[in-house]
Structure formats: structure tokens, C-alpha cells
Design a protein around this nucleic acid. Sequence first.
DNA 1: TCAAAAGTGTTCGGGATACACCCATGT
DNA 2: ACATGGGTGTATCCCGAACACTTTTGA
Lengths: 238, 238
Amino acid sequence: MTKEESYPQNEPEFNTALSLSLVIFGFNGIELQVLTVPSSFSPFKGALILPSRYLRAKDELLLSARKLFEGLVGEQNEITIEQLRAFGGVYRHPTGRVINVPHYALVKKVDFNHGKWSELGLKWHSAKMVPDLAYDHNEIVDYALERIKRRVKRRPVGFHLLGEEFTLGQLQNLYESALGKKFDRRNFRKKLFNTTLIIDLESESDGRENGQKKGSKLYKFNSEAYNKMKIQGYDFLF
Amino acid sequence: MTKEESYPQNEPEFNTALSLSLVIFGFNGIELQVLTVPSSFSPFKGALILPSRYLRAKDELLLSARKLFEGLVGEQNEITIEQLRAFGGVYRHPTGRVINVPHYALVKKVDFNHGKWSELGLKWHSAKMVPDLAYDHNEIVDYALERIKRRVKRRPVGFHLLGEEFTLGQLQNLYESALGKKFDRRNFRKKLFNTTLIIDLESESDGRENGQKKGSKLYKFNSEAYNKMKIQGYDFLF
DNA sequence: TCAAAAGTGTTCGGGATACACCCATGT
DNA sequence: ACATGGGTGTATCCCGAACACTTTTGA
């Protein structure tokens, strides 16, 4: 038995295409949302998909994900974007083997109802009710939801989904929506106030926006405290 | 501005090669280990790499990982194997774009010092001291170590690395080695006994193997209890 | 005899959980 | 008036962490 037979190292075949999809998470004050777009190419032209593109041989994965993201939502100073994993079902494309390397991104969802968006058909959906998507994109969304669940438990990613100012009610909605369970309001507050991650802005929301019925106090995220935590390897556990 | 310009969906190019590497974790009773092999192909012929192969257009990812794994360590009834993520640095291969989709696997390390292994040059290394590997395989190992750390905290994966019978000292060594920290022996035992995951075998190891100096009690893994936990979504937190 | 690992209980503190009532506002 | 969400404090329990001595055996 030669080495070549027994240990199957072999030569590469350059016959696969690479695509990259984004699971873009947003938050409307009530629940977690995911962004879709109608496909403008065959196959599945017109069907809903995740924002996606095919990569060229020189395209770095994370860089391409960033560019795709920024092409859609514009430049943001702090973007959270992370690879999920490779999805390589052999059935994915009729012409040949396509490997998709989806990433997820978190976006502070402020005023994205521009003309460009409606023109392209971009649309938010409740993460609990994502419609049928083409390819294996529903599987990708499910995987992304599991990932975000785990991330949210460990790091205060939630803040990347909220605007600069937010109420504790919104923050709690976000956690409940991402983790799929309810928290006691008093305990939730206690927990947050025991960290140094929250700054009281001493002002009140007018109660008009985002599913509130009443004004409430506004807070912002303490990014210095957060950065300190990042260095030391914190524990933030929901 | 047309759709094609503003939203960059495009056509695929089938010009990428796919490879798959395995980070195979073993445990020798003292510390966590990783398996390497000398490369038998250019580039980097002779350099140490992770066990790897190039995929054909029809090869499913996970299936190929299993086959590669079984080709090396033989069939096992319970294998733990999971994709890490895609590694797509454009520099990875001189001939063209290669995407590697490494997986990690856990193996109960029993008697793998066969002729085939030494012939191929397979070798275990302490996870803390993995030598320089070709390509980006060190980066992959580091990533796998992070993953295993997280997994070990949440699920009793450790058991997949131990033989049928083990001592609590070995189990503790495994956790300490995987997580990179020490535990108090009494607290560690308490924690384990409070679960139902451990069965007392009422017998003693002779103390001769695997870095022991003294005989100690043997235990085995309670797989029924484990399966029940899996269904209900357990908490197992180190 | 010395070094190294196995075995064994108790105490303390902090964090998670459970729980109820009043207030403000918009419908 | 009523429904919806905002705001607030206390008691309990469990788990994690800290901590020391004796025994066995091989070197």
C-alpha cells in the first residue's frame, strides 16, 4: 500500500465558486429582525434571499463581507461582522459547485427607509417569522440565530443593535427576543446596573417611538467600560 | 444608478479549489493533544500540516471530514466532528484560490501506534506546543482550541476524549488542559457528582498508566443521562 | 524518607430567582 | 375606566470558591 492510497492527500481542482451572504440583524425596539432582498439573478430570480454576492479569486472573505455590508447600509463606525461557517451542499447551484460563506452583521437600525432600499426591495422580517428563502438561506438564518443567541449570552452585543440612546424596556425586549425567553424586569435592571455598561442620560424619551406607551428614561452604552472588559476577558452572562 | 451597480449581485466564477483539514484532538491522560502529518505534496512537501485533502465538486463537507477521519483512525461508533469555519486567505496556494474548511474531531485515544501511523508520520503534539505548520494551519489550530474551550464549558464533550474507563484525576487533567486553568480537586469532584453523568465502576486502576503514581477509582460516562440532558437543553457550565 | 497523587467536608459570599404594588399615559 | 408599560426592594436559595489534612505508593 503506497502513501498515496492509504492517506488520501491529493491535488486541488479549481472548479468551485464562492459566494457570500449576509444575515443582517436589526432591532426595531420590539423584536429582532433579519434583512432580505429579492434575487435579481437566475436561478431563483425574484425569490427572496439574503443579500449575497459571488466572490472573485482575490476577494478576502471578511473584507468582502464588509464591502457588501457597507454597500447596503452605508459606512458605520463600529460594525460587528463575523463569519458563520461554510455551507457547501452540492445542490446549491445548477451550474456547478458553489460554497457559500455567510456572515452575520449587527446594525443599529436608524432610518434605512431610503429610496435605494425600497428600489432594491430590501425588507426587514421578524426573526421569528422569516419567510421562505431561496437556496439554503433559511438554514443559514437558523444557524445565525443560534450563533447570535450564544453571543448575546456572553457579550453585550445587544448594544450594537440599539441606537445611541435607548430605554431599558427596549434593551430588555432585545434580550428577550434574541434569547427567546422572558426576564423579570426588576432582576433585569439590577443585573444591568451592577455592571458599568449603562450610563443614565438623565433624560426621558417622549414615549412616541418604538412600541412604547409612556415616556421612560434614556440610557447609553458605556464604551470605555466595555473596552476595559474586552481586554480583561469579562464575564457577562445571561 | 442601475440595480446591477448599486447592489452588487453577480455571476459565479468556478475557479476556486476546496480543501478540508482536520484538527484531531486526543488526550493522553495528562494533556490535550493535536495530530499532525508531514505533507506528501508540493508546495510544502515534507512540512508538517494537519491531515488534509482537496475536495471534488461532489464531496459534501461533513461527509468528507468523516471519511478522512475514518481513514486515519478507523471506524468509531461515536464520533464528534464539527466544522470550524472557512479559511480563505488568498495566499494559501500558489496555483490559485484555495478555501479550506477545517473541522475538528475528538478521538478516544486508544492504541494508535500502528505501523500505518508511523509510516505516514502521524504524530501527536501537546496542544500547548504545536510546532510550526505549513499554510495557515497554526491559525486553524488556534481557532480549534478556542472552539473546544467554549464547547467544553457547555457540554461534557470531555467524555468523548477519554476511554471507556477513566479516573477523576484524568478527567480533571483534561478539563484543566482544555480550559487552561486549575480547579480545586474537591470542588471539581463535587460538581461532577452532583450531575448524573458519572458512574462509579467500583474498581481501581492499577495506577500504572497515564501519569498516575497511585491507584484510583475508575468511572465511566453515563450516556443515558447525557442523552436525556441533550433533549432538554441542559446547563453544564465550567 | 520523600515526593506525588488520591480522597474527603465545611464555610462563606454573591448572584440568580421569585415575588407585588403604585404611577403615568394614551386609548 | 382601562390597558399597557415604567419604576422600585426584599427574602431565599444555590452554586462557586476557598481552604487542610491523611493515606498510599513508587522512586
